[in-house]
Structure formats: C-alpha cells, structure tokens
Design a binder for these strands. Structure first.
Lengths: 230, 230
DNA sequence: CCGGAAATTAAACACGCGTTTGGCCCCGCG
DNA sequence: CGCGGGGCCAAACGCGTGTTTAATTTCCGG
C-alpha cells in the first residue's frame, strides 16, 4: 500500500510534469508500424531464434516502443506466429502452384528446378527451415510435417516410382531414399549458403543461383537415370 | 535499509534453523558431477539452443545446484564452450584420420561413405551442425569455416578436379558445386532425420543407415561419372 | 585426531525480460 | 470549433535469469 501510493505520487509528478512532447500520436503517420514490426520480427527471429531475441529488440529495430508489440499482436508469441504465417505464405502458395501445374508425368528434376527457384527468391526461407522445421522445438514443425506428408512428399515419391516402373530410372532406386536426396540437393545449399559462401568462390547472385540449380538438377537426373554404372 | 534488515532477519531465521542436513560435501562421491553437467549441457544446448536453456535447467538435469556450473566452469558460457570442445573432438579426430588415410586417389564416394558413418555414430552432431555451424550466430562457425576452408574442402575439390581431368568424371562438372552436392547428400539427411523419420517409413537404425549411405554414395557416383546423359 | 582443502548447498542480488497501466497528442467528425 | 477516440509512449511490475556469497559437511594428510 505505502509503496503503491508512493509510486503513484512519483508517476503523477513525472506524468503531467515538464518536458513532454515525445509522447502521443505522431503528426502524419507515414509509416505502417504493424508492418515494420513484422519485418523486424522476421529478420531477428529467423536469424537468432525466438528466445534469443527480446520483444524490446524487435520494437527498437522497428523504431517503436515495446508496448506496441502488445498493442498490435497481443504478445511476443502473437507477433511471432503472425510473422511466421506471413513468411510461410509464399512457400505454401508456390507449392500449391507447382502441384497444380505438375502434369503428372513431370520430370522430378524439373520439379527440383522450380523448387529451388522459389527458395532463391525468398532469402529468409533458409532461416525458417533451420529454425522452424528442422530444429526440434520449431513451432511450425507439425504443420510442415502434416503438409509435407500429406501433399508434397507422396507426389514426388510417386513421380519417382513411376519413373522406375517405366524403366526411365534405375531399377534399384528406393523412391523414399531418392526423395531424401531430392530434398538434400534442393534445400541444403541454401541452408549452408552463408558458410559456403565464405569458403568457396561461390556467388549466390542470379547467375550463380542459375549455375547451382543447373548443376543440382543435372546431378540428380544423372544419378537416378537408368543405365548408369553403379 | 528496512527491507535489507528484514531479509537478513528472515535469512537468519531460516538459515541456522532446524532441518539442515542437505548442505555440505556429499559422503562418498560416486558421481562425476562435472561430467554429468557436460552431458546435460550437450543434450539441452544442442537441442534447444544456448539462450533458450537456462543454467538452472542444466544443473537440474544433472541433479545439481546451479552454483556448481560456476564452480566447475566459471560461467554458463564456460560450460557451453567446454561442452562444444568435447562434442566436436570426435568429428575433428575422424576428419584427421580420414585425411591421413585417403590415398590421394580415393573415390569421393568412398570419402562420403566414411563421413556419413562417423556422423551416424554420434547422434548429437546434427544438432551441433544445425546450431553451431549453419545458424548465423553459431559460436563454432568461424572455427568450422577455418577448418573446412583450410583442410577438408580443398582436398575434396582437388579429388574431384583430378577425376574430371582423368576423364573419370563428367567434363562439365564444376568441382566446387560438386562439393556442395557432396555435403548436401552427406549432411542433410541427418539434419532432417527427425522430421523425415515421421514422414517416410524410413528407419535410422544400423540397417537403415547402411541403406541410406549406400543409396547416397551410389547417387553421387552415378551423378558425377563421365559418360552419363545430361 | 585435528585442521584445512574440496565439494556442495540455500539464499540473495542485480539485471533484463514480457507485460500492464495510464496518459499524451493528433485527427476527423459533428 | 470542440471533443472523442485511435496511435503511441514512458514508466512500472513481477518474474526468471546468471552469478555471488556464506555456510556447511566430508575427506585426507600430518
């Protein structure tokens, strides 16, 4: 009680006190603070992880007060999930598009080409995969597993199985292991990109990306094609 | 002041009070608490990340008081680096062994086989790669880059380059991109193991591991060999 | 058999966190 | 012109963190 009234008194003294002009609505809202918070959250959370980044840091990066996180998103967790929803949207849409367009007879290598092109266009996807899919505590892990097990994985496995049946692919090819290799070749270069970029003379601009995609698809095609020496 | 004396009084009351027998050196030290702390740290830090795990949690998992972390390792950070040193030791030793044994003319696929066998034997290596090598804030990143750029990478690239020169490997093969694919096929399955293990009927026991290694080495060999249709 | 070193503990401290509160200041409607 | 509400902020609260301290017990060499 005593402490409370003391605090109230102090607050009242500093509240309607002297140097106030910082508080209040800004003159002409040129910025969309909600979007700025989402962008800052995407960059920080996907780089350093949820626990390692404080709501204060995100707010500071967006040039805002920590309280705005709760004003717009209810909580730090709310900001996080909102960011994840926004960041995963293009990936989900791209997969839908690819599956709709795949003519059923498509070459797995062509699918890989399209897949890598999408990832190359969204630089935060590697961090998302690293933190939310492959890390044991990832929040989107279950969603990803459901999505992948239900839609993407079986399609690719079926594509490979049909290729084996038609004699186009190696007869001793295990379709599920081939899917693992498919994902390895398509995803790992992006995950390892920051490290490998400093080790190899490997640029990841548009040209370097095209070279990587060409190389990976060729290697997968040649490695799975029938009539190759094992 | 008032609060301080109040706390002191309370401490005095609970301090030399009645039920004390928990404090002090344990009768016969059957356990190696230092090793227990290192093991708990390895499991928790490599699963959830440094910031997400508190020193109290590690101590609790090892059945010890949080103060023991500082007694043995000076700080939480000290425990972490000690754990990393211990966890990376077998990987470094294995690479040394592999490089010493490699007869210079070795097949890259054979190197990949040995590489994957080593990783399969140490279940925490995937987490280590995920958190310390490929994540942007990884503590061992610089060490890894130095080690890799200085010793492992160039050796493999040279092996591939020689294969291309001798006409054993595809003439249009970029050796550096081939190294990327080499690492993709060798490392990614382990990183993705917990996710893929729930999607595919893929077991990662000794038998499943052998099948994966055989498949990956075959795919890489066939995908890089000369005389395959591109 | 005694005294100091080693090992362990409970308790406290300062600090940063996520969140809450209260109020300022501008805009647009009446 | 006035005023109500929406956008925004400073400050505070309670809690958990890493770390320190002091106390306590056992072990072991002389």
């Amino acid at each position: 009680m005593a402490t409370k009234t003391a605090r109230a008194a102090k607050a009242a003294r500093t509240g309607p006190g002297r140097p106030r002009r910082t508080r209040g609505r800004p003159p002409a809202a040129e910025r969309d603070l909600r979007a700025d918070l989402l962008a800052a959250a995407r960059e920080l959370f996907l780089s350093y992880g949820y626990r390692a980044v404080s709501a204060r840091q995100v707010a500071a990066k967006a040039g805002a007060n920590p309280a705005m996180v709760h004003y717009y998103f209810g909580s730090k967790q709310g900001l996080y999930t909102a960011m994840l929803r926004e960041a995963t949207a293009p990936m989900v849409a791209a997969v839908d598009r690819m599956l709709a367009e795949a003519p059923g007879q498509a070459d797995p290598a062509a699918l890989m080409d399209a897949y890598m092109r999408v990832i190359g266009r969204h630089p935060w996807i590697p961090g998302l995969l690293l933190r939310e899919v492959f890390a044991p505590e990832g929040a989107y892990r279950e969603d990803f597993i459901r999505e992948f097990a239900g839609r993407v994985g079986p399609r690719v496995v079926e594509l490979i199985r049909r290729g084996v049946g038609a004699g186009r692919l190696r007869a001793d090819l295990d379709p599920q292991l081939a899917l693992v290799s498919f994902l390895s070749l398509a995803l790992f270069p992006f995950i390892a990109r920051p490290v490998l970029g400093r080790v190899l003379d490997q640029r990841f601009d548009d040209e370097g990306l095209a070279a990587l995609i060409g190389h990976s698809t060729r290697l997968f095609a040649a490695g799975t094609a029938a009539g190759t020496p094992t």
